[in-house]
Simulated scan of single mutants.
Amino acid sequence: MVSTDRCYAVSPECPVSATTLGYYPNLGANAFFLASFTLCAIVTVAIGVWKRTWAFGIVVGAGFFLETCGYIGRVLMHSNPWSDPGFKMDLVCIILAPTLICAGIYLTLKHVARTVGPNFSRIKPRLYTWIFIPFDVFCLCLQAIGGGVDAAASDTTPVNEKTLKAGNDIILAGIVLQVVNLVVFGLLSLDFFVAAKKNFHNASPELQNSSAARIWYSKRFRIFCLAVTGAYAGILIRCIYRIAEMAGGWGNATMRNEVLFYVLEGAMVLYPAFLLSIFSPGLFFPEMGDAAASVEAQNDNNNNNNEKQENSDEGGVVGLQEQ
């Protein structure tokens, strides 16, 4: 068997079938995804700056920009499937991008919970980003470690199959944990919205006339929540697909199925990108902006101060009683 270690272009000794993907990536399809993600990145960042939803605009816009870079890599591989820069851009950027998009989704629930009613949430709103984003990063680190182990195994002659399998298993563990992270977040989100719906339905006149109730019942807010839910579903499907993609190791049949890639990787990230761009929080949930966030933070501080004061008062009463 002829080694492909020195393959840099397609030739009789280095056929396209010997590459990891096993095909020439379709130019038209990848150019479409490239242009679409570029547009989404520009729109998301522009609205984020315009409406001062800075964190969402920068984080999610960066995710779309990474998707753009990933498809640039695939365009490069159309002319040369052995392109090492193209393969690395495709692999790294398309793996990293959905994590940033997820971070934007985690951020929206934090602000929704703060605005509509922190008491409806099982955990404090600020913890959504403190728990789920670092765990996503941990999952990515596992995948990176697995990739490093695979690279080290592939550099040996002959290839160390045992080490290669260990690397694949580490990558797969990172992907599975990423899916678990998304599922737990989804369950907490569902729990929050069920609690909020129940409380607003049976609310006192005072609560029904509050600013939180006006936001909850507004059509704009409902549309925004549906858009984020749709985006979440797409990213979740994409992550589940990645489990199947890596389950058989590098160059398996699922990884080499180009149509499946465009449907379950490309489209399952692109339609969430359209949803998050068109129904941006800057337009449909402006309470997520800087000014509103500062008010929410002040309210949080006031609530914490009130709790401390109540505890202090209770402590004083207890002390007097003891005296």
Score class of each variant (00 low, 15 high):
9 A>C: 01
9 A>W: 05
14 C>Y: 01
22 G>K: 05
24 Y>F: 14
30 N>H: 10
35 A>D: 04
43 V>D: 00
44 T>P: 00
48 G>F: 11
57 G>I: 09
60 V>E: 00
67 E>A: 08
68 T>C: 01
72 I>S: 06
80 N>R: 00
83 S>L: 10
88 K>I: 14
89 M>D: 06
104 G>M: 12
112 V>Y: 09
118 P>Q: 04
119 N>M: 02
126 R>P: 03
129 T>V: 09
132 F>Y: 14
137 V>G: 13
148 G>W: 03
149 V>S: 11
153 A>M: 07
154 S>Q: 10
156 T>S: 14
159 V>K: 08
160 N>W: 08
163 T>F: 02
164 L>Y: 12
164 L>W: 07
174 G>E: 05
187 L>W: 05
194 V>P: 05
204 S>A: 08
205 P>E: 07
209 N>D: 13
220 R>T: 15
221 F>N: 02
224 F>D: 03
228 V>F: 06
231 A>R: 00
231 A>S: 01
231 A>G: 04
237 I>N: 01
245 E>H: 09
251 G>S: 05
258 E>I: 12
262 Y>Q: 06
264 L>P: 14
265 E>H: 02
271 Y>Q: 08
274 F>H: 06
274 F>K: 11
276 L>A: 14
278 I>F: 06
281 P>E: 01
282 G>S: 13
291 A>S: 10
293 A>C: 13
302 N>S: 10
304 N>F: 10
306 N>F: 14
309 Q>V: 12
311 N>Y: 04
318 V>E: 10
323 Q>I: 14
